[in-house]
Design a protein around this nucleic acid. Sequence first.
DNA 1: CGAAAAGTTGAAACCAATCAAATAGGGTGG
DNA 2: CCACCCTATTTGATTGGTTTCAACTTTTCG
Lengths: 242, 242
Amino acid sequence: MKTNCENCPLRQLDLFEDMSKDELQFMSRFKTGEFIAQPGTEILAEGASSSQLYTVLDGMGMRYKTLEDGSRQVVGFILPGDFIGLQSGVMGEMKHTVEAATRMTLCVFNRSELWDLFKYQPRRAFDLTHVAATEEFLLGEMLAAVGQMNAMTKIAWVLNRFYKRLTALGLNENDQVPLPYRQQDIADAMGLSLVHTNKTLAKLRSQGVVTWSSEMLTVHRPNALAELGLSAGVPAIRRPLI
Amino acid sequence: MKTNCENCPLRQLDLFEDMSKDELQFMSRFKTGEFIAQPGTEILAEGASSSQLYTVLDGMGMRYKTLEDGSRQVVGFILPGDFIGLQSGVMGEMKHTVEAATRMTLCVFNRSELWDLFKYQPRRAFDLTHVAATEEFLLGEMLAAVGQMNAMTKIAWVLNRFYKRLTALGLNENDQVPLPYRQQDIADAMGLSLVHTNKTLAKLRSQGVVTWSSEMLTVHRPNALAELGLSAGVPAIRRPLI
DNA sequence: CGAAAAGTTGAAACCAATCAAATAGGGTGG
DNA sequence: CCACCCTATTTGATTGGTTTCAACTTTTCG
């Protein structure tokens, strides 16, 4: 069942930068196999030093940190094309946990070969750094949202972000995108209580902006959502695929 | 006035990883000069594509993003040894503004030579990725603090972080470290109002935990501060210097 | 079909924001 | 060297957004 990098469906998307024939060959060698993660499974644990790195081929998940007092902060939602394990790869251990929200298909790489990538594929190494910088950028955006916005703006912001990212991945059908998370996940991501998150979602629904049920998000008024989320003029970021 | 990398004072610190003779030579060539930034100066602007990258030799600054509604989120405080401009270097433009809080001395590199670094110094390229991953880690920590903690914990957390980082840089003298920021900066970093930040600082003062005045932070009860900031067992992270 | 998980709703309490105003500090020009 | 101005800090009173508590409904899954 190992898909070849040559016909990886993700590569075709405009969202991701192109890859040369040479790079493609290297990546095919770099890839050691595929891994299926079941919903709710921990893929990488905070503090763990994994010998594997992954690129998401299919499915969704999330990254989160657990604080000393037990509370949870979701630091990112993982979608197809995302790279997992960079921290473990370069810093020795993961600084957050990665968990599957749905069934996920992962492209597996060996950490031990990461060094070869830097040695023999400087272009790919550069791309890896690009991915790291993109992660930093996304986290910065999220920090700004969590730190400065009120509840309504936060929720609109995160839903709009999902809508845009999933649309860029070609997962938008009739203004509907898959959103297989729980309200608690959104609450923990945006620094809100579950109850208030729920009430804010209800408000968006009653205003006819979005509907979110049975793991599908329907956006009825995309412009209203973007404006509520203070993301009117925010362009999608093109990035490399690892 | 160009200091040689060979006798760069930062390299001696335990905080930073060692560098080989070869790497050191490369860095000396990579470095094109030094730059002095005056307090309050913008070093890099959000959205700008800089042709220069920097490593901080001396002084302090901060990174911040400005939202569409005008509010400001401080996404990081910049201390000696920090690398500036990575996003611009690999993604083409900065995603946040960098501003000097004090007079700063910066080591200047040309972005155009960054590619040589990846091509001929894979070890240094790896270190650069390490730096990017460290940034991501620090942002994640901050996000967790801003998203999950209450005001007292947030303030204690950020002060403790300053105390630890500055101590690792050898800037601790008798439990005193320099802290040349305004209360507004701390407020914008932790997602609190200026007034509430001030009141929380007053509480910490009256409890005899810390004193912060005239740009100096004095920590009277380090353990109490760490516990209040939920950072009792958090180790310092060793990282490469660029 | 029953139990557990997720979502929904209302009421009360509270933490933090906002408003308002005074005090302290730092720099500059007379 | 002092008066003045502008910025930063401090403090009190009030408002309000969010959390917490509690209970109920719906959905999911074995």
